[in-house]
Design a binder for these strands. Structure first.
Length: 423
RNA sequence: GGAGAGGUGUCCGAGUGGCUUAAGGAGCACGCUUGGAAAGCGUGUGUGCGGGAUAACCGUACCGAGGGUUCGAAUCCCUCCCUCUCCGCCA
């Protein structure tokens, strides 16, 4: 959530930030509502103070068995005035809230300026795309060739944008989940959590999916349950409404969850294969940290995600999202893009963001180290998208006969299996 | 899903319309006392919003959430959420 005080004191700063994002917002309108609200609140509270004083006197008179009917009659008039003001305050409050809730975070200083993903900045490249002396297949051809990926059956079970995996490919995803969680918990210091996969509207608002992006989500009819689009939602909301002790920070959580996304507005994009599904598996990392530590923590978080790709020996690069490509809550985001020979391109496999205090304000997550509680900074990153990692393994480790080698680091998680063959 | 009992501050716990701007206790912080500690004594101890100098302080709201009745609500009424016990159903 946006800090209204920042908008009040530094409107030009905020305006510049919104322009960088190419987000059109009526800041003057918001400031007007804010000013109106403060006037009304002040007026209302003056009357309430009067009412409280009068009520106390009425109480005293009643106890002394004196007549208080005159005072009571006078209070009736004030009551109506207060009621009318309450109504108005409620209205402007709602207006201000909806204004603030739809304002995106401000990009950090060092985020490259750009209109969209074509202007992201490549930070570093790891590994080299492999050379193949045969014609490479994409993961769909490979998976279907092996008889282990079945999109047709998934369409029968659910519809388009779903996938059914069988045998060694189903095991591959399960192995990857364990592999990733083991590294994050044993080597990177994260606490594993297994959260609900459905969440309520309050949680969705806390992490910024609502109210603005409802069309990207699945909602369960007749309930207040939403299918979580990422573990970031349930895990960040673990500490919603809490005041943490400074000694508790930093908190690192990692979680495996399936993720559900409606992918509205992406019709026609990535229709083939496992790249863009309504349901996919992901291991997520979430951090709660002190404000002064969050930038260093973002670097570490990104490293943690990179470690997984390095152990799997998958070539990738790291890009910083430009201001036009940045997500709603993020102040800065690094995307990890893995090399996919079948597409002859780098494709996003992880997104690591520092949300600074933006989600903490929405979800009211604070910590105490002085008299006043302060907002924590929250970070999140995929570590990694499991389905896309499976795709990357299939395509990068493919052999001429259509079989797929299992990365060395993953073999212990696959019962020692070295190669996935048709079966 | 059905029946019943509950939800009060960091915690325990009192409180069924007005000396409650939430009693009392525990915890915590600071001070006194002590050779040191404990005990004892004293003081303080939440959050949001508005005003004010980003102070002191003042006002206001908050007793699961949201409405309502009333001059006045932790207390009465309505709706919802959660927890516990029993039954049903299931994994």
């Amino acid at each position: 959530m946006f800090d209204i005080r920042l908008l009040r004191s530094e409107p030009d700063l905020v305006r510049a930030a919104m322009e960088k994002r190419h987000t059109k917002v009526d800041l003057e309108g918001g400031l007007e509502i804010d000013a109106k609200r403060r006037t009304l609140v002040y007026e209302m509270e003056q009357l309430r103070a009067e009412q409280n004083a009068a009520s106390q006197e009425i109480g005293l008179k009643k106890r002394a068995k004196e007549d208080a009917s005159e005072a009571i009659a006078a209070m009736k008039a004030i009551k109506d005035k207060i009621g009318a003001l309450e109504e108005q305050v409620r209205e402007v409050d709602a207006q201000l809230q909806s204004f603030l809730l739809t304002l995106p975070n401000m990009p950090a200083e060092d985020v490259p300026l750009g209109k969209d993903d074509t202007e992201n900045r490549v930070e570093r490249v790891w590994g080299e795309p492999g050379k193949f002396d045969f014609e490479v297949q994409d993961h769909v051809a490979l998976g279907e060739g092996l008889g282990l990926l079945d999109f047709e059956c998934a369409a029968k079970l659910a519809g388009s944008r779903f996938c059914l995996s069988r045998g060694a490919i189903a095991q591959l995803e399960r192995a990857l989940i364990n592999f990733m969680l083991d590294i994050h918990t044993r080597e990177h210091g994260y606490m594993e959590v297994l959260p609900p996969f459905m969440v309520n509207s309050d949680s969705m608002q806390g992490t910024g999916q609502l109210p603005k992006f409802a069309e990207d989500l699945f909602k369960l009819e007749g309930t207040d349950y939403w299918l979580s689009p990422t573990a970031e939602v349930p895990v960040t909301n673990i500490h919603r409404g809490e005041i943490l002790k400074e000694e508790q920070l930093p908190i690192y959580y990692t979680a495996y969850t399936p993720c559900f996304r409606s992918e509205a507005g992406s019709y026609g994009k990535d229709t083939r294969g496992m790249i863009r599904l309504h349901q996919f598996n992901k291991v997520e990392m979430v951090k709660f940290v002190r404000p002064e530590d969050s930038w260093e923590e973002l670097e570490k978080l990104t490293q943690n995600a990179e470690t997984i790709l390095q152990r799997l020996e998958l070539p990738y690069r790291v890009v910083t999202l430009s201001t036009g490509d940045l997500g709603f809550c993020a102040a800065k985001t690094y995307d990890l893009e893995v090399w996919l020979p079948g597409q002859d391109a780098y494709r996003e496999i992880s997104s690591c963001s520092n949300c600074v205090d933006f989600q903490a304000r929405r979800a009211n997550i604070r910590f105490r180290r002085g008299k006043k509680p302060e907002f924590v900074h929250t970070l999140n990153g995929s570590g990694l998208a499991v389905g896309r990692t499976a795709v990357a393994i299939l395509e990068n480790y493919q052999q001429e006969d259509g079989s797929v080698r299992v990365p060395t680091a993953l073999q212990p998680y696959m019962g020692g299996l070295e190669c996935i063959t048709a079966g």
